[in-house]
Write a protein that binds this DNA or RNA. Structure first.
Lengths: 84, 84
DNA sequence: AAAATATTTAGACATTTGTCTAAATATCTA
DNA sequence: TAGATATTTAGACAAATGTCTAAATATTTT
């Protein structure tokens, strides 16, 4: 729960998720979409991965990232229960 | 959007919202529910207020806080659009 | 095998965040 | 009007966060 809200609390990470919604992307492709360094993107991806929001798979020398939205159900339920 | 995710990214603030869901509370009553200082609670309340998640009304020497869940619709829509 | 490419890890650094104590402001009560 | 109560504001400080450059690891290509 904590790691989910934490992962969502950054505009770059939210933007990464929006892009991954369209299609899977390699770390390099994701880095190319933003004006920050590759190591910084790598760090953001690790936070998203730790929250379960993305998964990664090594494909040769590339690493392909995909979104996993099922963990967001927990957030949805939390918010909905608050709106009750 | 940013201030909303930021406000939600703290367990104490999320807990304050859960309590306010039950009934309106004064700043002092809220402070009594947690093991941190009154100024810290005051600071958390200011962040929630800034995000539009709570509103406050002065009642004599007290300040009564209420939850406002309508701003959460924006978050809900963001998440749902991500789940597509 | 060496060079090139893709990505992460390590370490440094400035900014933001959450907490505290002390002081200020406002309201109520004797 | 004093004193008590409720809350915030101000300022300090440690910890967390986001960024960077340099170096390490792994894979592909020549």
């Amino acid at each position: 729960m904590n790691s989910l809200f934490k992962a969502l609390n950054d505009p770059i990470r939210r933007d990464i998720l929006k892009h991954l919604r369209e299609k899977d992307l390699t770390a390099g492709e994701i880095a190319g979409l933003f004006d920050i360094s590759r190591p910084s993107i790598s760090h953001h991806l690790e936070i998203l991965r730790h929250a379960g929001l993305v998964s990664s798979e090594k494909q040769g020398q590339f690493i392909m990232y995909s979104i996993n939205t099922t963990v967001l159900d927990e957030v949805l339920e939390w918010i909905i229960s608050l709106k009750g």
